[in-house]
């Protein structure tokens, strides 16, 4: 993690305690996760307890304290997707990638995570990869979707 880049992020948010969540979001966008060193630097520079930053970073599901792969595969297990077989899609994805939920593949390509509703239940079951939505998923379609990402 680059301390200078992080300082740039903090500057963008005026080093303000009220901007800490935004800083965490920016840091996560750059690093794809939140390195502990970064959390420590934010606490120090903004002048709030490290425990507070850690508390925020662990509260929100979108933040990750573990390194994430280059692409984030989110399999929706919300009510609609669950009913339409989201669980089976999840099984297929984790089996194909050979990595359990919440873990990164050894080659650093993917991290798979379950989500509870991505807001388009009409397309259930839904998988998102990074910012792209794939609706009406089937086990057959999984491999094709994953192939698009390097």
């Amino acid at each position: 993690m680059d301390a200078e880049r992080l300082d740039g992020i903090m500057r963008r948010h005026d080093y303000a305690p009220s901007g800490v969540i935004a800083m965490l979001q920016d840091l996560q966008r750059e690093e794809r996760y939140l390195p502990l060193e970064g959390l420590r630097l934010i606490a120090e520079r903004v002048g709030i307890p490290a425990s507070r930053v850690y508390s925020l970073a662990t509260f929100y599901r979108s933040f990750s304290l573990k390194p994430r792969g280059r692409h984030l595969v989110s399999v929706c297990l919300g009510t609609a997707c669950h009913v339409r077989g989201g669980g089976r899609i999840m099984d297929k994805v984790t089996r194909d990638l050979g990595t359990p939920q919440g873990e990164m593949t050894p080659d650093g390509r993917f991290t798979v995570e379950p989500v509870r509703c991505v807001g388009c239940c009409g397309l259930a079951p839904v998988v998102t990869v990074d910012e792209t939505f794939y609706g009406g998923m089937t086990q057959q379609k999984v491999a094709g979707v994953l192939r698009r990402y390097e």
Binding site: I48, S51, R52, Y54, S55
Partner: peptide
């Protein structure tokens, strides 16, 4: 001081010092 705070949330919520290590 602020050495401890809540971490995680919902049923996983607990009290912890920063980064889960002694402060």
């Amino acid at each position: 001081v602020g050495a401890i705070d809540f971490t995680n949330r919902g049923v996983h919520m607990e009290l912890s010092s920063a980064f889960g290590v002694p402060s």
